[in-house]
């Protein structure tokens, strides 16, 4: 289940095969939103088909925090002040460094050493004020140990569903938009079964169930048609187009950049 930015790397390393779409008749290129299918195709060949998409914003417990946060700049500010000791960042370099870069006015995918140095400075300054560095933030948010966290769409929707006081916000200064894909590994022992499963999952009637369980939005308009209104009108799951414009897809080089990996490791061990 690769995310957009890993597909080209997997392809380069020869880990995944081109998909034989004739074995996945339920997949329909026409009804897919092209924004989310682009990265599955390399040199005109399809290597992966989309599962769902989402964003990386932040979740705020509004009964604990009075401040109104609208941007990553606010996030890193409040984490050191009102939410001192209550904020969480991901244990994941892409989003943690990316959001820090965005808050400083740089691009989410930057690998420029001088910009990364600024982001590192910010993160190290913020670290003593954090509650935790952990990508599994739901338990801490639910227990109200943490009041503010970096958050993916599906987690944000689940948290908000169970605890309405937890809101989900996209940074108006930027952030990440992502697509998770399905692909079949080159050395998969049973490819026929893989295709059968994939075809099953691409059937809108099954995809809608997956959607309801996981909470992340779909890329396929056939599935949207099957969704209940309270989901399609949920602004956490399907935000306004305008709030998506500043967001960027994570790039493959961002993920494999050794400088960013080492920065994250330094931040964690600081």
């Amino acid at each position: 289940m690769p995310t957009n930015y890993t597909i080209s790397t997997y392809h380069k390393l020869g880990l995944i095969d081109e998909l034989d779409l004739s074995k996945v008749p339920n997949f329909s290129q026409k009804t897919e939103n092209p924004r989310f299918t682009k990265e599955g195709r390399i040199d005109g060949k399809t290597y992966a088909v989309p599962k769902n998409w989402g964003t990386t914003g932040f979740a705020t417990n509004t009964s604990k925090l009075k401040a109104k946060l609208t941007s990553w700049k606010d996030f890193f500010e409040i984490v050191q002040t009102e939410a001192d000791g209550r904020g969480m960042v991901h244990d994941y370099q892409l989003t943690t460094i990316g959001s820090a870069l965005v808050s400083l006015g740089y691009g989410f995918n930057s690998i420029k050493p001088e910009e990364l140095a600024k982001a590192e400075e910010l993160l190290i300054k913020v670290k003593p004020h954090l509650f935790a560095i952990n990508s599994d933030y739901q338990p801490a948010m639910r227990a109200t140990d943490a009041w503010l966290t970096m958050c993916w769409t599906n987690d944000g929707a689940q948290l908000n569903r169970d605890m309405p006081e937890i809101s989900y916000t996209l940074g108006k200064d930027g952030g990440e938009i992502w697509t998770d894909y399905y692909a079949i590994p080159k050395d998969a022992p049973n490819k026929a079964a893989g295709y059968a499963l994939l075809n099953y999952l691409m059937d809108p009637n099954n995809a809608v169930k997956e959607h309801l369980a996981n909470g992340a939005p779909t890329t396929d308009s056939r599935v949207i048609a099957l969704l209940p209104k309270e989901i399609t009108s949920n602004k956490i799951v399907y935000p306004d187009e305008a709030s998506l414009t500043p967001l960027e897809f994570g790039a493959a080089v961002t993920l494999t950049d050794p400088g960013r990996a080492e920065l994250m490791a330094r931040f964690k061990s600081a």
Binding site: D91, L130, A132, I133, N134, E262, A265, K268, S269, A270
Partner: peptide
């Protein structure tokens, strides 16, 4: 410690399973 109080053991897990250095 929430990944904030970092021991050598934590650094090793990070380097082998996450940052893969």
């Amino acid at each position: 410690g929430g990944g904030k109080v970092f021991f050598i053991g934590n650094a090793l897990v990070d380097l082998f399973l996450q940052s893969r250095n």
